[in-house]
Amino acid sequence: MLTFTIRRLILSIPTLLFISLVIFLLLQLAPGDPMAQVPLTVPPEVKEKMREALGLGQPIHIQYWKWIVQFFWIEPQVLLDHWLGTTFSEGKLRVISWQTRSPVMDIVVQRIPQTLWVVGLSYIVGILIALPIGIYSAYKQYSVFDQSGTFITMIGFSIPPFFTGPLLIVVFSVQLGWLPSIYDTTHVVTDWASFKVQFMQMVMPVMVLALQTTAQISRYMRSSMLDNLGQDYVRTARAKGLREGVVVMQHVLRNSMIPVITVIALGIPAIFGGAIITENVFKVNGIGQLLLTALFANDIPMVMTLTFIFAILIVLFNLIADVLYGVLDPRIRYD
């Protein structure tokens, strides 16, 4: 198992390099001049100097190498400095945003908590709703509950978040006036009343994202439970007189969770992608919204870093899913 994990870890390095190259080349090939916003009165030779100051005069492979060094070598040093108070990164050039002229990572670190709160909480809520639905509808296959559950998950599957979001805003913010439609990220939780405000503003974005998760995971849970409920060991368990609760919740559930857990791990990067839309609907200033504003402002270092962070998440959770699958299921042997 350990060797498999190490092998996968090593294999993920070329994967990440390839992805970073794809993103880099895409951004390089793209037309769009970062000097386009500079006033026309600025003489061309000054513009040329500004271009060189941004590192644009050099050939592509040197730009790529410099970006790699900045991202994989200098940024971790900054992180170390921040944690340990050392001075490894002093005087070294970090990835600088063209919009704000400040290091990209500093802005990302400011924005990530909002995204993590909304996305993480919605994922947990989604899973907590999905698992019981999946278990019960598999146990009572073709019952009214199962049929309606399948129908509702199909709907959750099909309605895009950019429709459910505005719909919820119309119903709960405009018509009923219960919940705020805009997520206020400057709000600080100090006491019970402010916690309540925080809770109220998180309900809608979390539920919109959770609907997608619930639909997906409850379908997997149902089919995984159905696969196991027909197995021989279930009949044996019943034959030796175990209570139904023990049979379903211990014997069947544990075996059925194995594929579901990998699906849960694989779904985490996708939900970050979905958060781009939800953050846009509810005006949450997380990293999805940051990506959008950076794109429209032609801020290439920011776009590159954010896209690459999404890529790291995908590769990381693919790896976690693979390893978890091997750990949980003793029948799977990678070696």
């Binding site: 990067p269 992608g273 781009i276 999404f310």
Partner: peptide, 9 residues
């Protein structure tokens, strides 16, 4: 393993 939605954008 490419991040599809960001890349599309």
């Amino acid at each position: 393993s490419l991040p599809i939605l960001p890349l599309l954008l």
